[in-house]
Design a protein around this nucleic acid. Structure first.
Lengths: 226, 226
DNA sequence: CCGGGCTGTCACGAATTCGTAACATCCTTG
DNA sequence: CAAGGATGTTACGAATTCGTGACAGCCCGG
């Protein structure tokens, strides 16, 4: 089926991930440090890489960058494992180009789901972009900049992330729970109504461009195209 | 339907969980300590396990690990019950691999919801689609959008779910009780006649496309292909 | 220490949606 | 065709949902 390279320096972690991925029908290759990872990434040409952020010798971020620079490996989807939610911004940053991330601790099932998701996405169309445009509304992700009719709109970090997530999943309704997951990173303690408040603030700042943000009563919010 | 193994050393807790799961239509097997849990997990091959963190003899964490190592049980979703929120990290930890957790005290409703969620995730892969088409009627699930001859039809959350469930089980008659289970989830207090009213509203909004929704007198409703 | 921006929560009200009862109609059965 | 049950239709009060404004805690720079 498909080959996955798993990189982590903790043997237990590797073993668990390996076991679960194999159960899901994938072929698994492992590496325990950065240089080994780079070697195997070229040698085995995996279809996907699960990469721990913290590694001895060569850091996970560094590995990611190098993989992206090399034409032989730059097209391989990477899922980053991070210990802290705070590191996520850097992971998803342009200069790194990880395709997805999971914060530790995570459930193996969750990992398998994301792997499947990325594999599917690989064949399909739905890719993450640096820039989203909805009519006069432009979202520049790496620059953290939003403009409406060329005029800059100042958004807070949360508002920006919320808008970006909605734009990424354009067309599809996102439940409040889903948004809490994606924007607030697994912080289940937060009230779902908080999403409403941030949507309100976001809409207020976006002015007329707020029309791209739909409320789907009883379900959640959705970003629409026109 | 589906079998669930409930593991807790407090009889009261077991009883409460058992009662609620049974009310939701599940078959329940119970165990009061770790070794019994392991035995029954293999013997009964449950579809899901609800596992208390603190157990006499073999700790819940240990049980979880062992279950994950054994190929016979590693695929079974596990929901952990923890007394303290602080323990969550360990529960969802990489080396453990629980799929979800609930902190005590919890509402039975919450538990049932999580169980359903995990079950759905498990089996829904083949049958469930993002999109259903019945002639001029198109149901786009992720977008939460229904169109008839390309014209958008506004449905409430309940109506949409009802239509989706019927479309998923296309061709097969669904009893009112079944529909209440699938659409209204946990709440079995609702009058079956309520389904009729929602069917009426749904048909009204669908206009001509309502012809895809059959009434099977004395039995229930059915979605037909042509 | 103060002040301001950001964030999460709450409370309130308007609007929608829901569940049920009541009545009307349809269908089956004998 | 009559009777009785099942379903369709309508109306309405209850409950839910969402937008809005207010507010307190937090962090950080001055």
């Amino acid at each position: 089926m498909a080959r996955i390279l798993v990189v982590d320096d903790e043997p237990d972690a590797v073993e668990l991930v390996e076991f679960n991925l194999k159960s899901a029908g994938y072929e698994v290759v492992t590496a325990s440090d950065g240089s080994e990872a780079l070697k195997k990434a070229k040698a085995c040409s995996p279809d996907l890489i699960v990469l721990d952020l913290m590694l001895p010798e060569v850091d996970g971020l560094e590995v990611c960058k190098i993989l992206r620079r090399d034409p032989a490996t730059s097209g391989i989807p990477i899922i980053m494992l991070t210990a802290k939610a705070a590191e996520i911004d850097r992971v998803l940053g342009l200069e790194l180009g990880a395709d997805d991330y999971i914060t530790k601790p995570f459930s193996p099932r969750e990992l398998v789901l994301r792997v499947k998701n990325l594999m599917k996405r690989d064949q399909g169309k739905d890719e993450k972009k640096d820039r989203y445009q909805l009519g006069e509304l432009v979202i520049d992700v790496p620059r953290h900049l939003v403009t409406v009719q060329g005029k800059r709109v100042d958004l807070t970090a949360t508002e920006f992330k919320l808008l970006t997530v909605l734009a990424q999943r354009r067309g599809r309704v996102q439940s409040r729970e889903q948004l809490l997951q994606d924007v607030w990173q697994y912080d289940n303690l937060i009230d779902t109504r908080t999403v409403d408040t941030h949507m309100r603030r976001l809409r207020e700042k976006l002015g007329r461009a707020a029309r791209y943000l739909d409320t789907v009563r009883g379900v959640g919010y959705r970003c629409v195209e026109n």
